[in-house]
Every structure is written in C-alpha cells, then in structure tokens.
Design a protein around this nucleic acid. Structure first.
Lengths: 232, 232
DNA sequence: TCAAAAGTGTTCTCCCTACACCCATGG
DNA sequence: CCATGGGTGTAGGGAGAACACTTTTGA
C-alpha cells in the first residue's frame, strides 16, 4: 500500500471494525450453519462466516444485514448481536474488532438461492476448520442459541410456516442435544397454547399422515405480557 | 488538530472504539450505579459511565478493566461484556463504537475509596440525565442483569462475604422489582443448599439478631455440573 | 398381519405458593 | 406488655416425568 492510498488519518490508532454472521438453518433433521469460502488472503480457501467491514454511515446492525444479503441473498427471520471479539492478534493484517451476530433462516424457503457464491450449509457436528477465531465464535453462538431457545420462541424462526409436531420436537432436540418424551412434548406445546392446529395434513413418512401446525405469535405475545415464561 | 498530529493513516475509514462500564453496587437496600462526571467536551459536566478508548495492544476486556481501575479504583467481583453500540452519530466528535460491560462490585469494601475523581453512586431509580446514549446502555444493562440473575448466582457478587437472609432477599427484590414471601425465600435458599450457615450473628435492627451466611461456590459448582438450574 | 409412526391419558412426585404461629428483644 | 423482626411448618395445586395402548397405513 503506497502512502497516497492511505487517505484516512487519525491522531490515535483506530482498529478496523467488521461484522460476522453465524447463520443457523434447520433441514428437518439437523441444525446447520452457513459458511462461505474465503477468496482472498488471509485464510484464502478457508471457510468462514459471511461478514465484512462496517461502513462509516451505517450501524453494526445495518452492516450485518447488508453483508449477509450481499454474500448469501438470505433474509434472516431473526437476527441478534451476541458478542464482540477484540483480541489484538485475531487478524494477521491489522487490528480488527468484529461484532458477531446470530441469525436464523427458514432454510426451506431459500434452498438453491445460493447464487454463484461459494456458500454452503454444514451440519453442526461436521464443521470444517474455520478462518480467524471463527471456531470460538461458533461455539459462543451455539451457546447463545441454546440459552435463547429456553425462553424465547425463536425455534419457530427455523421452521417453515407450517410444520408437524415431530419436526418441532426434532428441532428442539437437535439444538439442545437432549431427547424429549413424544407425549410430554406434545402435551406441553398444546398446554402452552401458542400453536394453531391447521386443518391440513402432510405425509412426513409413507406410514401415516400428520397434522400441520403454525406458530401463533399473537397468543405468545398475550402470554408474555401477562408475565409468562416460555421454557423447554 | 493539525495535519502533523494525524499520524495514524488507513486506506479505509476506521471508527474509534471505546469501552464503557456499567457498575452496579448494592448499599443494603437499593441497587446503585456508579457514574463519573465528564470533564472535557462533549457533554462536559454530564454524568457518564467510566470508560475510554481501547489501546491497540489490549483486548476489550483488558481495556474495560483498565479504564475501570483508572477512573474508579474499583476491583469488580464480576464483569461481563453485554452489548456493542454503533449508531453512527452517537458521538458528535467522530464515529465511535463502544463495547459496553456490566460490572458488579461489593460496595461495602470500597466505600470512600473513590479517590479525588468525581465519581458517585446513584440509586437506580434516581439516575440523572446521562451523556451520549448512556441512558439506553443503562436500560440494557439492567435488563441483562435481571436476565442473568435468574440462573446465575451473580447476586452474591453484590453482597459482602457474610450476609443475612434478609439482605439477600432485599437484593433480589430490588433488582427484579418484585417481592418474595419471606418464608418461601428462605426455604428456597436452604433447599438449594448453596449457602453456608455461619455461627456468627449480627444485629441488623435493634430488635433481634440474625444469623450470617456465606455463599458456597463449591456446592454451586457441584450442582451446576450435575445439570442443575438455579432460578428465582 | 406386521412394522412404523401418529395420537392420546393417567399417575406420581416435586416444587412453588399461600398462609400463621412462636420467640427474642428493646422500648 | 407490646411492637418489631427473625425463624420455622403445612396444606393445596400445578407442572413435569414416567409410562402404554390404539389407530392408520404400506409393504
């Protein structure tokens, strides 16, 4: 880099600031993470989270959404900032602080929309080595997701609008890593009264049809206002 | 600022990055926040959280602790990063992104150690207008504190090493803004088995003595490892 | 007729909640 | 002797956990 190119000068050293987005999707049986293959140095050819440098006229939230859209064409159904990583040597080029986001997408709605980008879904238990400190970031994102799902209905953001009870249960089981009794899970969901039972059915297996449900956000908000705590 | 003083140049614009520390203390009856009065512009004379610019050779965690120590001489018994604020215009001087921390101190151990600095404790319901977006930051910090206290024993970080059951209950009530039944609260604490009942007593009122307790972190860790969830 | 998955109900236990009495002390 | 606050016990209800049978369908 020549001196002429360095046009932005400050009295004190400033770090660069990026956003990184950990995007979770659920394929019906397993939790997945969307990674992009890096083109340039450093870590060329490694997998990493979509993200990039924040612009001076946008907030981190806006930057995260912009980068996410640019690199993956995805519209997340949920996004939340969860931690900022600032180890001085985490990027070999210069001091880079990254603000990390956790995003959830309804994977079914966008399958195949990956464009020409080298983006790919990886099951949560088959993640390749990641660039920078992204393995740490992933671990933290998963912990936050597990924490959040206990008291917020964000699990529904990973499912299609209509789903079966079994899909919902499999989702929770794969995120939390525990198994539920099928009958107790159904009872609990019905008791919570945040699901709409639809008239439609599907054939998830060739054996027998299953009724479809949708998430009732109005009922959820009612309950929340009355001092209610969702828990799994 | 003259051109000669602007010695740190980059190809792309970089924001400045600071840390800010929301420090909570409990005076025995109310939750308090430590604020410092700003000397320089902008917001000269306004109250704000202790904090400052991050150095290029330190992580945000290190920077937050350094600033906290420099400005208040306090050693927090607990500190945790909780959110990063990045609205482009939140600082009138230049683009400043701040990484906000939540800290708890045992207020009794440091009373009067405020040095010559203009630092002062404010009860949580009598907070003056704050500089920058610090009122938003405070609101978020309080929300995080309330969220954390449900499942982590961080409340004990606000109490002296020895405390009465009433002090503990008052602490929880003032943080969560709800009242507990005295008998049920005591029963729950005893049942959790994370308190050491000491042989000592104090006279919190001139009426009758009360037994002192200390927090038993070993028992808490045992329970945590067995898949236990602390809840209030 | 058999295998596989959907749908549903009961019992037991534990924890939370509401609630009342006794005791020690200082005024 | 009375007001104040500390310390403890009990009964009832609700939610989670354990658990089994029936139904539907394709092979």
């Amino acid at each position: 880099m020549t001196m002429e190119e360095k046009r932005y000068c400050y009295r004190y050293p400033h770090p660069a600031v990026t956003t990184d987005c950990v995007i979770f999707g659920f394929d019906g049986s397993r939790l997945n993470v969307l990674l992009v293959k890096r083109g340039g140095e450093p870590y060329s050819g490694w997998w990493a989270f979509p993200g990039g440098f924040i612009r001076m006229d946008e907030s981190a939230d806006e930057g995260a959404l912009r980068e996410l859209c640019e690199e993956t064409q995805l519209k997340p159904s949920y996004i939340e900032q969860f931690h900022t990583y600032s180890e001085p040597l985490r990027d070999p080029r210069e001091r880079v602080i990254t603000i990390a986001y956790l995003a959830l997408v309804k994977i079914q709605e966008v399958k195949g929309g990956d464009d020409a980008k080298e983006a790919q879904w990886f099951p949560i238990d088959h993640i390749p080595h990641l660039a920078f400190d992204h393995d740490v970031i992933l671990r933290d994102a998963l912990a936050r997701l597990r924490e959040r799902i206990h008291f917020h209905p964000i699990g529904f953001e990973l499912l299609p609008d209509k789903f079966t009870l079994r899909e919902l249960q499999t989702l929770y089981e794969s995120i939390l890593g525990i198994r539920f009794d099928r009958r107790n899970f159904a009872k609990k969901m019905h008791h919570l009264d945040i699901l709409n039972q639809l008239d439609e059915t599907v054939w998830p297996t060739p054996k027998r049809e299953a009724t479809l449900y949708s998430f009732n956000i109005e009922k959820y908000n009612e309950l929340k206002q009355r001092g209610f705590r969702l828990e799994f």
